[in-house]
Write a protein that binds this DNA or RNA. Structure first.
Length: 154
DNA sequence: GCCAACGTTGGC
DNA sequence: GCCAACGTTGGC
């Protein structure tokens, strides 16, 4: 799950009451559909995008499954979308709960260098998808990277 | 239903 | 700040 840390970072989430927050503002159908497929207690990587050091910053847990994103019908919200109405919601969000930060940030460049992750949509050319599935193999490969130094070869 | 124009994303 | 790549929109 991608977020711009200037707007909402893993530290923001950690500082929240109950360390949980709605993941609002998703305005892309593919990303929305992936959110709808999430189940309570699923884990997700929290990815920092559009920043000095893009990469994986932490791990969150899905605390509540998809429900209507009310920011879509709030005219003052930057995520306002008049096509969505309370009686006919178009966009959904999930609640995420802070689990932990990764032991060290795992930079995008490092993810790219790992052949096990070659098929991740994140790394596809020109990919802009903000929510995407991670296979168990990819999940394990990333956790392994966390425990290795970025300088060490394997 | 095509597809050009547009606005957005996001790495650099 | 630039700009490539993308998803969406809307005219036809």
């Amino acid at each position: 799950m991608k977020s711009e840390p200037d707007v909402f970072s893993i530290d923001h989430l950690k500082a929240r009451p109950r360390q949980s927050a709605p993941w609002d503002g998703v305005r892309n159908f593919q990303a929305r559909n992936f959110m709808r497929a999430m189940r309570r207690h699923d884990l997700a990587f929290f990815y920092h995008s559009s920043c000095a050091e893009p990469g994986i910053a932490g791990i969150v847990e899905i605390a509540r499954e998809a429900y209507p994103d009310s920011s879509a019908w709030d005219a003052r919200s930057p995520y306002y979308d008049p096509r969505s109405r309370p009686d006919k919601p178009l966009w959904d969000m999930v609640d995420v709960r802070y689990r932990r930060k990764v032991k060290r940030p795992i930079a995008l460049a490092e993810l790219r260098a790992n052949p096990r992750l070659a098929r991740m949509p994140l790394l596809a050319r020109g990919s802009r998808l903000s929510i995407m599935p991670v296979t168990p193999e990819q999940w394990a490969a990333i956790l392994k990277m966390e425990s290795t130094t970025s300088r060490g070869k394997k």
